[in-house]
């Protein structure tokens, strides 16, 4: 189980990385944290002609607050996000999700941007940034562009990023007063990819959810925004009845895939259970606030 022959280039600047991507396009893979790419190389499931190592692009790492948004550089390691006081203060949803992302050794190396760019449908971070309305910046020799998270995830490991584009940063609006968050997932073992999960960012007024983003992962081919479940509860005082209504409405939002983790019916059931629990927690937090 040894990786196939390939060539390797270490990019020392973003411009150099972009030039290599422009030159090699589909034949090249960007090597960031490598926590998902390296297994596929070792298993010979992917055979790029060229690996472009961006790990030395310090400009792409870092967390800062700019204009009511947190900017997370694509190369920021998961461990840095988990430790970040900025994230803890302004992006509590992401702070809550981080311990679920794999294990310590993987978080030390894996990158925030890598997780977004890979778009694994069972991953936590794509769901979180979708719930938070983030903007993703990509760049190529053709120029730089911003993509709303809602437009970014296109399908199974498929994104709006073009083969010659490099993910530069993710800008995530800071959590505003009056909004609450909650994150839950079910995985068989600590750090595994989820078999059901939901990221919730809600605006509340007392016991009433006025609006919310409920994003489900580990169900469909990409993180799924549930509009019907939210519509079932929006503007209503939280109660057993609205809880049941949200759970019932979820089947109009979500059509989970069968896979090794379980059947579609099983996953839909779990997502319904999480819907009730995550909203319970959101309301509880709203009360406490």
């Amino acid at each position: 189980m040894k990786a196939p022959k390939m060539t390797y280039a270490r990019a020392d600047s973003v411009a150099q990385a972009l030039a290599l991507l422009a030159e090699h396009g589909d034949g090249a893979n960007v090597l960031a944290g490598g926590q998902s790419l390296m297994p596929t190389l070792n298993m010979r499931l992917s055979k790029p002609d060229l690996l472009i190592d961006i790990n030395r692009l310090e400009d792409l790492a870092g967390i800062s607050v700019e204009d009511d948004a947190v900017r997370i550089g694509a190369l920021t390691r998961h461990a840095a996000v988990q430790r970040s006081p900025i994230v803890a203060e302004h992006l509590p949803l992401i702070a809550e999700a981080m311990p679920h992302v794999a294990h310590v050794a993987v978080r030390n190396r894996g990158t925030f941007g890598g997780s977004i760019a890979l778009a694994d449908p069972a991953a936590e971070l794509p769901a979180c940034i979708l719930a938070l309305g983030a903007t993703i910046t990509v760049e190529s020799v053709r120029g730089r562009r911003d993509i709303a998270a809602a437009d970014f995830f296109k399908g199974l490991f498929e994104t709006e990023r073009q083969p010659d584009e490099l993910l530069i940063e993710i800008r995530i609006p800071c959590q505003r007063p009056g909004t609450v968050h909650a994150f839950m997932e079910l995985s068989r073992r600590q750090g595994d990819f989820a078999i059901a999960g939901v990221a919730c960012a809600a605006e509340t007024d007392g016991e009433t959810v006025t609006d919310a983003k409920l994003v489900y992962f580990a169900s469909e081919d990409r993180p799924t925004l549930a509009a019907n479940a939210v519509a079932a509860i929006a503007g209503k005082v939280w109660s057993d009845e609205s809880r049941s209504a949200a759970m019932a409405a979820l089947s109009e939002d979500l059509d989970p895939m069968d896979n090794l983790q379980g059947s579609a019916a099983f996953k839909l059931h779990l997502q319904r259970v999480l819907t009730g629990r995550v909203l319970d927690q959101a309301i509880e937090r709203a009360r406490a606030a």
Binding site: P39, N42, R109
Partner: peptide, 25 residues
């Protein structure tokens, strides 16, 4: 493939999976 942890080493002070990193890196 990065699951078992038997290959764990320290890279610049932090524990990482040694099988999920190229020597050249």
């Amino acid at each position: 493939h990065g699951i078992c942890g038997a290959c764990s080493v320290r890279l610049d002070g932090d524990v990482v999976r040694g099988c999920l990193m190229l020597a050249i890196q």
